[in-house]
Simulated scan of single mutants.
Amino acid sequence: MTSSTSRNALVMIAVVIGGAAVYWLSEILTPLALAIFLLLMTDGLARGLVRHARVSEKVALPAAILLITLAFIGSVWVIIDGAAGFFTKANNLSARLDMVIADVAGMLHLSVAPTAHELVQRFEFERYVGVAAKGVQGFASDAFFVLVYLGFLIASRNGFKKKTDSLFPRDEDRAEAAAVFERIRGGVEGYLWVQTVTGVMIAVSAWVLMMVVGLDNPGFWAFVVFLVCYIPVIGGAVAGLAPPLFALVQFETYTPALVLLIGLQVILFVIGNFIYPRMQGENQNIDPVVILLSLAFWGALWGVTGMFLSTPLTVMAIAILAEFDGTRWIAVLLSGDGEPYPRTEEERARKVETA
């Protein structure tokens, strides 16, 4: 009992110290984590080009690197350009905001409705807008370091095999380490595939709806909807509420905002309840409560970047914890069905029979 208690206490202390170190080193670790994330995407895309497009292995990796780099740079440009356009038009929306506030005050039976300027001064919205603008600027600067990290990671890929052979001299240990890596890569790539496909479906449907309604910058908002689909829980709320809120300010009537709200909720409901579960399969065998806690934990440590990476990091943690007898119970608690990554033939057969 003393040994078990001491071991559990040491584990808890190590987790707390590790979390503090990850938080203090966030400015260094977040670009590196994103670079590793992009490296996995690049590797998966290269293998996909070889398997499905019949591209040679020598051409597949450079083509994948070029596509991922262009997509990443394009994403940064769309975000910065769209945010700049939004902040430029924000100064011309005060009159419409006053009308919306007056209508809401009338519904609440308030005798005197505050103006938008008064609300801005009372709640210090200017400070929050400044923080948001600073965050966009920081995202652009971090993007440069992400690409630098990605370049060095790709350049060092050739040495991974030699390092693995030196770390695991025995064939059994090396095979076991390779199996763990395959589980991590398969889980992360499966998660990326499902989120990307469903995100494209939601973004395209939302873009068509916003074009029909006539919302300004529909391409920017569709791209924002696509990006937030990678954030569990919060992403759906942002995708379903952000465009209607800005339609509420843009148009003279409330009908376009109501159409956007209902239409986006229908899109999210259909894809989230019928298409997403069928595509998900076993790629994300995580308990829903764990997804929420992981989102809060990594969001507190690394902000928005942590929210984006919360689920892939949890997939990696489950794959590693499930490999060792002393920590497998943690992986069992984190998994959705209580059977994370079966290691033996009996476990695999039992999981197939259960499914």
Rank of each mutant, 00 (worst) to 15 (best):
V213C: 03
W298A: 07
A143E: 11
I36Y: 12
F123Q: 08
V50H: 11
S3F: 10
G190W: 14
F226S: 05
N217A: 07
L295T: 00
D216L: 00
G281Y: 13
K161W: 08
P218C: 10
P243D: 11
W77C: 01
S4L: 02
K161T: 12
I36E: 04
A203M: 14
R350A: 15
L192S: 06
K163V: 07
S310M: 08
G272N: 05
L70S: 05
L153A: 02
L261E: 05
A319P: 00
Y341S: 03
I17Y: 00
A71G: 11
D103G: 10
T314G: 11
E252P: 09
G299C: 03
L167N: 11
A239Q: 10
W193R: 15
K134P: 00
A133H: 06
M279L: 10
I79A: 12
D287W: 07
T42M: 01
L61P: 06
R174N: 06
S3M: 07
F123K: 07
I231S: 03
F160A: 14
L97H: 02
S6P: 01
V290Y: 01
V233E: 04
L38F: 14
L38Y: 13
T69L: 15
R185K: 14
F160D: 14
A331G: 10
L293Q: 00
G199V: 02
L293A: 02
L301P: 03
S335C: 05
E252N: 15
M1S: 05
F226M: 08
G151E: 10
L10Q: 03
